[in-house]
């Protein structure tokens, strides 16, 4: 095919998550695991050794019953756009930022498992394969052929379902278009969210719903002051959510944190 598939302007894929809509149901986490062939937990795995590319955190306003309030904050790789902390530290270039999409990619085949990137990531969005992946007998039939399962000893993380991007591009190319139209490429978590709390799109495209929402009021990003320009925005109309999620480390009391 000789079709010109170069796009004029690089995309900057990102998402806006409406915290007020998130019910903490975990559908995003399950859809993500199914899409990306993330194995079930080993019997001895914990919330600190398990792998879930998107993890829904429960945050609290710090008050006690009945003034207590809770919100759910899904945290996946925030796809940092500036001085991406994990990219520069990787000794063998297993992490890269795709210029065309702004997506921070992880090549498990290149990774030697030094975990330096995990130490570098302020969002704890990177996960290490402490075990070889094991699916119950027969269940390997249900694996997604678009994503290779990872072996023990390598790091993995959310890549905005790169497999879906490739598939969408192929479909677009088959239809004679250079790039997928908005909505043709959405990560599994976005598609699965029962309350449609996640808006995904090209932030560089001013007219995209995601860009519009990101610009709108009530949004914030996690650890914005680190200056890494994450491409995942959060939205909430509840002031305490802003306070807790954005609060500087310094002004926080220990009691406010669960666990």
């Amino acid at each position: 095919m000789t079709m010109d598939t170069k796009r004029k302007r690089p995309a900057r894929y990102g998402m806006v998550i409406d915290v007020d809509r998130c019910t903490g149901c975990g559908a995003c986490m399950i859809a993500c695991a199914v899409e990306n062939n993330v194995p079930p937990a080993q019997p001895e795995a914990t919330d600190r050794t398990g792998i879930t590319w998107v993890r829904v955190y429960q945050i609290h306003n710090g008050a006690s019953f009945p003034e207590n309030r809770t919100a759910f904050v899904p945290v996946m790789c925030q796809q940092c756009g500036h001085q991406t902390p994990c990219v520069s530290v990787c000794p063998q270039q297993a992490v890269d930022v795709d210029r065309e999409t702004g997506i921070v990619g992880q090549m498990p085949q290149r990774c030697l498992g030094c975990r330096y990137c995990m130490a570098a990531c302020p969002y704890h969005a990177r996960y290490f394969n402490w075990w070889d992946p094991v699916w119950p007998k027969g269940m390997e039939r249900t694996l997604n052929p678009a994503v290779a399962p990872r072996m023990r000893g390598v790091v993995e993380k959310c890549n905005f379902c790169q497999g879906r991007l490739h598939a969408a591009r192929e479909r677009a190319a088959a239809a004679g278009r250079a790039e997928p139209k908005p909505g043709e490429y959405v990560p599994a978590c976005v598609e699965a969210c029962p309350t449609a709390a996640i808006t995904f799109g090209d932030l560089a495209d001013e007219n995209s719903a995601a860009a519009e929402q990101a610009r709108g009021g009530n949004t914030f990003r996690l650890l914005q002051k680190l200056g890494t320009e994450p491409k995942v925005y959060y939205r909430s109309s509840r002031p305490w959510v802003h306070q807790v999620a954005q609060q500087d480390f310094g002004r926080r009391k220990k009691e406010e944190i669960r666990g």
Binding site: S88, V89, C90, P91, Q92, Q93, A94, R110, C111, L112, G113, C114, R115, Y116, F128, N129, M151, R152, G153, V154, V155
Partner: peptide, 22 residues
């Protein structure tokens, strides 16, 4: 300490010159 010691030589083969670890 590394998860895939068999790939230890990757750092020499595909070095990322920006990394302190390299």
């Amino acid at each position: 300490d590394v998860g895939q010691p068999l790939r230890a030589w990757f750092t020499f083969w595909h070095p990322n010159v920006h990394s302190m670890l390299t």
